[in-house]
């Protein structure tokens, strides 16, 4: 079953003094996410990631299009029992303790009183906050707040968890803790939809990713497939730095250390480069194929080019 189906959602904001100039924030977006999938929604700042999440959560209303969550219309209040949401850089009521906050959100999600107590204890333990349950949130560090944020998103044991930039602003330890929490959600069989611009996190966690830029979907697929779509390149090392001037036009990057030169060449230019190096009477040391990275794919698809719809 599809966990999330986004059916041509669009959003334009009205700008200008008279609020009569529409500024598109999201072009028609079509996406399907399967149940149990961990899906990364990638894009630079201002790409439309948060707008998409706000639309799905009913915080803003779409200009056109619709979405379905677990087969139900996304504005159906009943379906909201099955979703959890962590906003970007969340702020929680700082006059509450972590336990009180979780109790409040559990109550709003309709969790019965007896179950609430058990779930709160379980989640405080799971997020490493068992000793801080009674502490007011104003005394929490950013990493602790983010962990409380994930706890509130899953306090009602939802099937789908939406996380908006969950690692943003965290130190490496905080990021690792959140990564482990997301992995544990994945192990529990939850569908996780998270937006990020930190590509290493997406690579480590996601089954599939989509890249969005300027409100337009630029690409979607399994991480390995997307990486393989990046340009084929090779690293060539040779002795005879004098030849660099003759081959410089073929190289995307190069450097020299004494008599040894190194250059990176596109796959289609490799034969021509080797031929020229032979003619220049250099001695070839190595040719190493370079694997594409998600970053290559991301950079290639977030430049101003024609969008692809997936």
């Amino acid at each position: 079953m599809n966990a999330i189906e986004i059916l041509g959602l669009t959003k334009s904001y009205l700008t200008g003094f008279l609020r009569n100039k529409p500024k598109p924030a999201l072009q028609p977006l079509h996406l399907t996410i399967q149940e149990g999938e961990t899906f990364g929604f990638l894009g630079p700042n201002g790409a439309g990631k948060t707008t998409t999440l706000k639309l799905l959560m009913g915080i803003v209303f779409p200009t056109s299009g619709s979405a379905r969550i677990l087969g139900h219309h996304f504005h159906d209040p009943g379906i909201k029992k099955q979703i959890g949401f962590l906003p970007e850089q969340p702020y929680f009521y700082d006059y509450l303790s972590a336990s009180e906050l979780l109790d409040y959100y559990a109550q709003l999600s309709g969790v019965p009183k007896d179950e609430r107590r058990k779930r709160i204890a379980l989640l405080l333990e799971r997020t490493g906050l068992a000793d801080a349950g009674k502490k007011q949130l104003r005394k929490f560090s950013k990493g602790m707040l983010q962990r409380v944020g994930i706890a509130q998103a899953i306090i009602h044991d939802p099937k789908i968890v939406f996380l908006d930039e969950p690692m943003s602003g965290l130190d490496p330890i905080g990021r690792r803790e959140i990564r482990e929490l997301i992995l544990s959600l994945k192990k529990d069989g939850k569908t996780v939809f998270f937006s990020t611009h930190i590509l290493s996190d997406a690579e480590a966690l996601c089954d599939r990713v989509a890249v969005i830029h300027k409100g337009v979907l630029r690409g979607i697929g399994v991480v390995e497939d997307l990486k393989s779509q990046t340009e084929d390149k090779s690293e060539v090392v040779w002795q005879g730095a004098h030849a660099l001037a003759a081959v410089a036009s073929l190289l995307s990057e190069s450097n020299v250390a004494g008599e040894v030169a190194r250059g990176v060449v596109r796959g289609q230019d490799l034969d021509l480069l080797l031929e020229k190096l032979r003619r220049e009477q250099t001695r070839l040391i190595s040719v190493t194929p370079l694997h594409g990275t998600l970053e290559d794919y991301f950079v290639a698809h977030t430049t101003d080019q024609e969008a692809v719809q997936g």
């Binding site: 959560m57 915080i59 209040p77 906003p87």
Partner: peptide, 14 residues
């Protein structure tokens, strides 16, 4: 302003 409303409206709260 503090976006606490986001975590409320994403629940079954009308």
């Amino acid at each position: 302003d503090k976006k606490t409303l986001y975590t409320i409206l994403s629940r079954p709260v009308r």
